[in-house]
Design a protein around this nucleic acid. Structure first.
Lengths: 231, 231
DNA sequence: CCAAAAGTGTTTTGTTTACACCCATGG
DNA sequence: CCATGGGTGTAAACAAAACACTTTTGG
């Protein structure tokens, strides 16, 4: 690399990790344990190592916090304003991820730079370190606009779900009420759901049918779009 | 920055600069004058300096080659695979720009790293250095999908243009034929064009009315979307 | 007067929206 | 038997697509 100037630049990845929990859309926040912004809430992120791609770095950050691999992640923007980090020029590549919360909701905040990690409703976000508020907002915008033409939503739901659960999730993300009949007509019309021979259990009203997302059907009809989930 | 590892990382910006010329969509390519990929065609790009934001770096690259400022540019993706640069890990942030070619079509390839710069039709692109082919493709995809709901096309046309010119440009970008009456109905229906008291000159057939894009009307109705041109 | 492109409406088709009642289940 | 959400169709409004001829101009 001798012909290139050594700029001592630093770059990192930051992740907006979405989950759907208790009827709310939440993101994973860490509490920082070092300055600057010591004790502040922040998006999970880390430096990119010399021997890993940025995608790998993002997957690593997610894995270190959640123990999950093979999660849908997508790079959405790179933030490189001069003032974004008080200690110098650090460019950060931002990703969003969609994860399916299993019941124990276990997190393992084993990273050196975080003393705690928790799921926080996007409606009650605290102030965030650096420019992480803008990063979150841009990521959420991206999710909102993609959700209408790509099956991102399924990544947040359990494998088997009811149409009402799916509709609720869309309503929360899009922040508007949807008509039940029209919603069902449309989503079933895409023919990307598989109806299961199984019903909801443990509810004190008529049990709803369970469905699962059928990746095979999806890729048959929409093979144009990039794969939206790594198998 | 002492608390952060010094990774000696390097990052750059690369630009896919579009223009509409002789009825074709073209991008600006340079011929490299140093290894690796000496003599190859490549997208214009450069290292990001320590004291500039990535947006500024992209504007600088464009300015150095074309002498133009205040051009619409948009960051679209960051490429950071390990193998993308043979001499080491270089992350590059990619931008596209849309420029209005004035008649002399002058370029000033005054940069140190390029011995020539020229407009090349996207239908006849040569092999490109590094992963620049993928960068171009991703950028073009973005333009194609944005053109339908944001007024990017106007950035490529002269200030005064005919509806047929506008339609041709859409057809070339979308790579499909459009119906003349439907196109006019739709584009006029958005009410973002101003009809001028002026007609085409020097044509040997009925002269068409000239229009210009009316930024004021546009921002009135679509103030949601980010500004698509810096004034 | 001819070649070339400008300009102009209506019909058909498909898509989106609005809207209300009966059904099944658990307690 | 009742409270709760599950499940279902049709009509109206709107948007998109298909389609062909007359007008203007320069040469």
């Amino acid at each position: 690399m001798t012909y290139l100037p050594h700029l001592n630049s630093i770059f990192s990845v930051d992740c907006v990790i979405f989950a759907f929990d208790e009827g709310e859309l939440k993101i994973l926040l860490i509490e920082r344990n070092q300055d600057p912004y010591g004790d502040w809430f922040a998006l999970p992120g880390n430096m990119v190592n010399n021997d890993e791609s940025i995608d790998t770095a993002a997957e690593r950050v997610l894995y270190e916090l959640t123990g999950l691999k093979g999660i849908y992640m997508e790079q959405f923007y790179t933030f490189g304003d001069l003032g974004r980090h008080p200690k110098g020029r650090i460019i950060t590549v931002a990703y969003f991820a969609m994860i399916r919360l299993t019941n124990p909701k276990e997190l393992r905040p084993v990273t050196a730079y975080a003393k705690n990690a928790s799921w926080v409703s996007i409606k009650e976000l605290p102030e965030l370190a650096f420019d992480h508020k803008s990063i979150f907002e841009k990521g959420f915008e991206r999710v909102k606009s993609k959700i209408s033409y790509q099956p991102l939503a399924f990544e947040l739901l359990p494998e088997k779900f009811t149409l009402t659960q799916l509709q609720n999730l869309y309503e929360i993300i899009l922040n508007k009420k949807l008509d039940k009949r029209n919603f069902r007509k449309k989503i079933l019309g895409y023919d990307i759901l598989k109806e299961l021979d199984e019903k909801q259990k443990g509810v004190s009203y008529r049990a709803a049918k369970l469905y699962k997302f059928d990746r095979r059907k999806y890729s048959k009809y929409f093979q144009n779009e990039l794969s939206f989930s790594k198998d």
